[in-house]
Amino acid sequence: MNVEINGSIFEIENETVSIEKLILNFNLDLKSTAVALNREIIPKSRYKDTMLCENDCLDLVSIAPGG
């Protein structure tokens, strides 16, 4: 299935993938990653049981330099 992640389209082979699994597959640290799925904020407690669907739009965010 195709999923938009941070503005780019990614093809995901596994049809049942959770947000947690996706974060780990990207080699990201769960503690320093926040998630918005289709513009809605997903609480950390739901990463494990929230499954991605075709054409989902995901934002994976963290801290960046700023004033």
Partner: peptide, 17 residues
């Protein structure tokens, strides 16, 4: 210290953290 909250850049070589 102040920081921004931004989309993760997968191509970045270094992590601010």
């Amino acid at each position: 210290i102040t920081v921004a909250v931004r989309r993760i850049d997968f191509s970045a070589k270094e992590n601010m953290l």
